[in-house]
């Protein structure tokens, strides 16, 4: 997973290294480190942007470690939502108001529906869809999937989830 982070740290020696260490500990690979030192600023605060590749599911851990080092994360990523998971839906998807189903996910504020492929084989027959959810963290993803399951259960739509082993 490619992520980009904007960090705010004290402009003192050793600060940057203390942020880079947890990245490698999380199995991350640093692509770029961009200093944004404002020559006129005497606030003693340094803005750094880091672009990195990170194994899936490690972002929560990394964010926690960086925060514990007293560094403020002002922004994560060009895109807010990094994690995505595709699920299948089977049932009367259109007639149970698919836009309501999508809205319920989008309204959470932590998850979005980013893709929906729908196949309707014949009138009055059950249709099938692939739905892709996006979230920032694994915790949010699990919450979004639980919500989709709940909404779908009420509409008698079967949800087929990917097997996430010991994730």
């Amino acid at each position: 997973m490619r992520a980009s982070m904007k960090l705010e740290m004290k402009d003192t020696p050793g600060q940057l290294v203390s942020v880079l260490t947890p990245i490698s500990e999380c199995g991350g690979n640093i692509i770029a480190v961009i200093h944004q030192r404002d020559p006129d600023s005497d606030s003693g605060v340094l803005d750094v942007q880091i672009v990195l590749d990170l194994p899936e599911g490690r972002l929560d851990d990394l964010v926690g470690q960086i925060k514990r080092r007293g560094v403020t994360i002002t922004r994560i990523g060009k895109e807010r939502l990094f994690l995505q998971r595709s699920l299948l839906m089977i049932g009367h998807i259109m007639h149970t108001d698919i836009s309501d189903t999508v809205d319920q996910i989008d309204r959470t504020g932590y998850a979005e529906v980013s893709e929906l492929s729908l196949v309707m084989p014949a009138i009055n027959e059950r249709s099938s869809a692939r739905i892709t959810l996006k979230t920032a963290t694994a915790t949010d993803m699990n919450k979004a999937v639980a919500l989709l399951r709940k909404v779908s259960a009420a509409k008698e739509i079967l949800i087929v989830e990917p097997l996430e082993e010991c994730g």
Partner: peptide
């Protein structure tokens, strides 16, 4: 309740 269409949608993504 699994449909062939659902399996095809899965297969599109190499699953």
């Amino acid at each position: 309740l699994i449909t062939p269409e659902a399996i095809r949608l899965a297969c599109d993504r190499e699953t």
